[in-house]
């Protein structure tokens, strides 16, 4: 229907189960194989596993293409991106298994095949790592933070907050202005802190003490302004946390994507060499 109201979806097991079955089948095939015929470059087993692995790799890479061609994907009803991601992940894992079976669990001795082997590991492992980040970081972000910001807008928002804080400090009690001067470097720009990986609210409590200390000394309007400054500061910290973690969510792709493209290119070279020689 044109207006699909989607409720909460139950966890879908179909995909993982399907792929685990496929993995089991592949492994069984491999064990059976050890009795019937050795997997060796060029023989029928090796070719079967190899072409299955190649097909899976292409399938996994298609996910990237699908993400970049959403309009076409919707137009041709190519299925939801979540399903594709499932295919991507499980297909990628299965690819590695089939690749290893293709090589007979031996280290290849050729230059291209060696690179293929290494890059397959690299890509799949970085993918698994990325997947773990994808499951871990959002939970961290949503558990401890109240603000939700767009990564690309962080510099603007930080500037906005700095401006507001500066204006506030300029027209307020001397003590607050002094505190702001202390804090000014922290407001200046988005900051990465490794600490956010451990504690998403890093720094809030430490600074909070200063604010609490000052609050006792101030009264009335000044106290209100102090609270507002603390609000700015807290938001800035949250934005920094977003900045740090969201950046990680974006940067891991640099480990995964270029390598995988190279992997496909190597696969093409490999296919060519298999075909031509």
């Amino acid at each position: 229907m044109a207006n699909g109201v989607s409720g909460p979806m139950p966890r879908r097991w179909g995909m993982p189960v399907l792929f685990l079955l496929a993995m089991a089948a592949a492994a069984a095939g491999f064990v059976a194989n050890a009795y019937f015929s050795e997997i060796r470059a060029g023989n029928v087993w090796s070719l079967t596993y190899g072409s299955a692995a190649a097909a899976l790799l292409v399938l996994a890479v298609t996910y990237g293409a699908r993400r970049r061609m959403m309009r076409l994907a919707s137009r041709f009803r190519a299925g939801g991106a979540a399903g594709w991601l499932g295919l991507h992940i499980w297909g990628g894992a299965l690819f590695l298994l089939l690749m290893l079976m293709h090589s007979g669990f031996r280290l290849p001795s050729g230059v291209i095949t060696g690179w293929l082997w290494a890059l397959s590991w690299w890509t799949v492992l970085s993918g698994i790592g990325g997947r773990m980040l994808q499951r871990w970081i959002p939970r961290m972000l949503s558990s401890g933070l109240t603000t939700e910001v767009l990564y690309e807008r962080i510099p603007d928002l930080v500037e906005e907050i700095r401006g507001r804080a500066a204006r506030l400090a300029a027209g307020s009690h001397e003590a607050i202005a002094t505190l702001y001067r202390d804090l000014e470097p922290e407001f200046a720009a988005p900051r990465r802190r490794w600490l956010f990986f451990v504690d998403i609210t890093a720094g809030r409590e430490r600074r909070g003490r200063e604010f609490r200390h000052l609050r006792r000394l101030l009264g009335g309007e000044d106290r209100e302004q102090l609270d507002r400054l603390e609000g700015f500061y807290r938001t800035k910290l949250e934005i920094d946390a977003h900045y740090t973690l969201q950046q990680t969510l974006r940067l891991w792709l640099y480990l995964h994507v270029p390598g995988s493209l190279l992997l496909v290119a190597l696969l093409a070279a490999h296919l060519y060499s298999v075909w031509a020689y």
């Binding site: 970049r68 974006r250 792709l253 640099y254 994507v257 270029p258 390598g259 995988s260 493209l261 190279l262 496909v264 290119a265 190597l266 070279a269």
Partner: peptide, 15 residues
């Protein structure tokens, strides 16, 4: 994320 694909394509070109 153009850079992502860009890097990959660069690697492919080098290859």
């Amino acid at each position: 994320r153009r850079a992502l694909v860009g890097l990959g394509l660069l690697a492919v070109l080098v290859l």
